[in-house]
Amino acid sequence: MSLFPSGAAGSAAAAGAAVDPLIQIRDLIYKIVGIFQADNKLRLLEDRCQKRMKALGIPTLRDYFDCLTIKPIRQAEMVSLLNEITIGETCFFRNPPQIDAIRKIVLPKIIEAKSKLALRQLRIWSAGCSTGEEPYTLAMVLLEEQASQLKGWTTEILATDLNERSIAHAKAGSYGDYSTRNVEPLFRGKYFLLSGDKLRVKPEVQSAVTFSRLNLLEDARMLFMKGVDLILCCNVLIYFDAVSKKRVIQHFYTNLLQHGYLFLGHSESLFGVNDDFQLVHLPSCTAYVKSDKRMADQSR
């Protein structure tokens, strides 16, 4: 298998039967849900497909591709495959480059922008926080910065999810080995308490996050999420159809302040979904910022 096998996007599909069905599945996932599996992850993708094929009794990848495209169960099957792809991804410090970029580049830029406005208040939103690992990670990062760049700043972390049970789990703040596998010993000692065979986040971390149930498609409530500096929405939009995704992203655009940032999950893209946000590259990760073009249009 050579790298970049599919060449120009779309050419693979046009070539028809000769194309590797795994590449077709990869491209289909990217087209429909916006999450990309790089070539060196294709074997992993194949394993995930094989799991689903076994469950459905489907013999070949080509048949499975058909199942994801033309069969009546295609939507449900795509969700099942996505669940396989993203399974076990929720954990503390899930995406280290993203966390480093927030601490070293994004926070200083936000602080600089807000200092000009004499607003020493930071508002972060973890949209689709699942069982709370992401917002608690952010809380620890902010607590670390409290003595330096965030000295004298008020910080607020809002964490929302559609699922009541996930929110209840998050509020309880108690986690097993798997969720905490990436937590460094220093942070483990500083921000967690041992509680039986679980680790419980310390009260100072817990109190830094406000959890609530929210449906990202509920326009009326989305309008209230105002004045946000940073939104993280990882592996959530992949479950939305194109129209809903556009709507949520448009809300995020409105929710964010002018200097605001939107982070998606690893290998998630907004290409073809929204032109107002601009892609920016940070060390080993990407983010989206509000574009000057749109702001210029608005001010006319």
């Binding site: 970049f4 990217y30 990309f36 790089a38 060196n40 290998s267 893209s269 892609l279």
Partner: peptide, 18 residues
């Protein structure tokens, strides 16, 4: 116009690992 730079970046990440 347009170019999917996000996708190209993800592809590049895989390449860099190789």
């Amino acid at each position: 116009h347009p170019f999917d730079l996000a996708r190209f970046t993800f592809e590049t990440e895989g390449l860099l690992e190789e």
